[in-house]
């Protein structure tokens, strides 16, 4: 059972079950805990090779035991995500912990990842359970619905879940080349039905200066 203690520490109460968490993110525990490094994120040999090839490397440990375990990552804000059979897309670096029952994998994101400067691939989490993602500043959760598509700056995008199509939109025109660009040259457009997590801070992206 995931709960937040403050906004920057995740507490997980366990009764013999397990969670997968980012390696080294445990800050404290009470009770009996066993920590086991999962090579390749617990995705087997195929997952391991895929992650190695795609650069979405993730060092994950499995924590199992009785008691409470606390996790934190560089004082970043933690956001809880509940999954009910749907899928969460998140960058490997932003994923802090998941229920052991959730499946993680790697998927191709195309140009969106390239614009963010963090690669063409992203991590997916699916199944039933909870996941915790980290962001720079508390994430704002925005709903995407068929009548209200959402446009997001690639540098502020953290994660999304649900049945959402993303497309890349570029506002690069001759003005950008003249240094008179709109400052928001690359954007990701989300359409469909789902949620998008946006952080109140922008990573440095190649699009940042245009």
């Amino acid at each position: 059972m995931f709960r937040l203690q403050g906004s920057k520490v995740l507490a997980v109460d366990m009764t013999g079950d397990a969670v997968k968490a980012k390696n080294g993110s445990m800050v404290a525990y009470d009770g009996q805990m066993a920590f086991k490094k999962l090579s390749g994120g617990g995705e087997g040999l195929r997952g391991m090779v895929t992650r190695r090839l795609t650069g979405e490397q993730m060092t994950v440990m499995e924590v199992r035991g009785h008691g409470t375990c606390w996790f934190a990552d560089r004082a970043a804000e933690i956001n809880l995500v509940g999954l009910r059979g749907d899928k969460l897309w998140v960058e490997a670096g932003n994923l802090l912990a998941t229920d052991a029952g959730l499946r993680t994998g790697t998927t191709f994101t195309g140009l969106r990842g390239a614009a963010q400067g963090n690669g063409l691939f992203t991590t997916t989490v699916e199944g039933h359970g909870q996941a915790a993602i980290v962001s720079d500043g508390p994430a704002v959760v925005l709903r995407v619905s068929p009548q209200y598509p959402l446009i997001v700056d690639p540098g502020a995008y953290v994660a999304h879940q649900g049945d959402v199509r993303q497309s890349f939109q570029s506002g690069v025109t001759f003005r950008t080349l003249l240094g008179e660009g709109g400052g928001e040259a690359f954007q990701i457009r989300f359409e469909g039905d789902g949620l998008v997590y946006v952080q109140p801070s922008e990573r440095n992206t190649i699009a940042g200066d245009l």
Binding site: Y148, L150, G183, V196
Partner: peptide
């Protein structure tokens, strides 16, 4: 607005440089 401070938007919004 200052460049790069927009993180997301709904609707139809256009961003143009001051020289537009």
């Amino acid at each position: 607005l200052q460049k790069g401070k927009m993180i997301a938007y709904y609707g139809a919004i256009e961003f143009n440089g001051i020289g537009h």
